[in-house]
Design a binder for these strands. Structure first.
Length: 205
DNA sequence: GGCCAGGTGTAAA
DNA sequence: TTTACACATGGC
């Protein structure tokens, strides 16, 4: 029953789950928009994040985003919920990125996981989402879908990092260095798509 | 009408 | 360190 990370990867990879997705799965990978999306999607469906993005057209660069007022931002992100806490956290984060790194490109090259974890509103999962999909780092995201899927294979841990290392280490052996960022990015993407689909079809498996 | 969504911060034991 | 709870809209 217990499977390796590679076996789970292959199980998902056979299903062509990313057929309609971008290369890195997350929309507009490598842009500041990923940072905003990582916060907005916390305990929120992506559909509702897209509604907020629709209200933020023209403001999804670091510089433009910093020019938003708090009330203005709250209004725009209302569809994604928790807007009273997400708005100030997003503005503080954008301002800190600008003050610390100057522009998004420098942020992408220089930011560390530790720096992200110091920001209010960012914990393990959001930090890894930003590192993996905005900064192309070799960090794999673990979310509730991931834990749910691994449980189906009889795998359960207590801590976030145990899940993360189980998956990262298992794939590093199989793929080696070089394309690990892409492998991690797509692995997490497949896990999310599998759950979305499984939910729709009552039960796959 | 109730439950859940691509979580996080805080307070209290 | 662990647990409990607030945060909020929208879809089914």
């Amino acid at each position: 029953m217990q499977k390796s990370a590679l076996e789970i990867y292959n199980f998902l990879n056979e299903k062509d789950l990313l057929r309609d997705s971008p290369k890195y799965w997350w929309p507009n990978a490598g842009t500041f928009e990923v940072v905003v999306g990582a916060i907005l999607t916390q305990n929120t469906t992506w559909k509702n994040v897209e509604k907020s993005f629709g209200n933020l057209k023209g403001f999804l660069t670091l510089e433009a985003f910093c020019s938003l007022g708090e009330e203005e931002l709250k209004n725009a992100i209302r569809p994604s919920g928790f807007y009273n806490q997400k708005a100030p956290r997003l503005l503080a984060l954008a301002k800190n990125i600008h003050d610390e790194f100057g522009n998004f490109h420098s942020f992408e090259e220089q930011v560390t996981r530790e720096w992200l974890l110091m920001q209010k509103g960012i914990a393990d999962e959001s930090a890894d989402a930003i590192l993996c999909y905005a900064c192309y780092r070799e960090e794999m995201v673990v979310d509730s879908y991931t834990k749910r899927l691994l449980k189906l294979f009889g795998i359960e841990f207590k801590r976030y990092r145990e899940y993360k290392f189980f998956l990262e280490d298992g794939l590093r052996e199989a793929f080696g260095d070089g394309e690990l960022n892409l492998v991690y990015a797509r692995f997490h993407g497949m896990i999310v798509e599998y759950n979305k689909r499984a939910h729709k079809l009552e039960s796959l498996h």
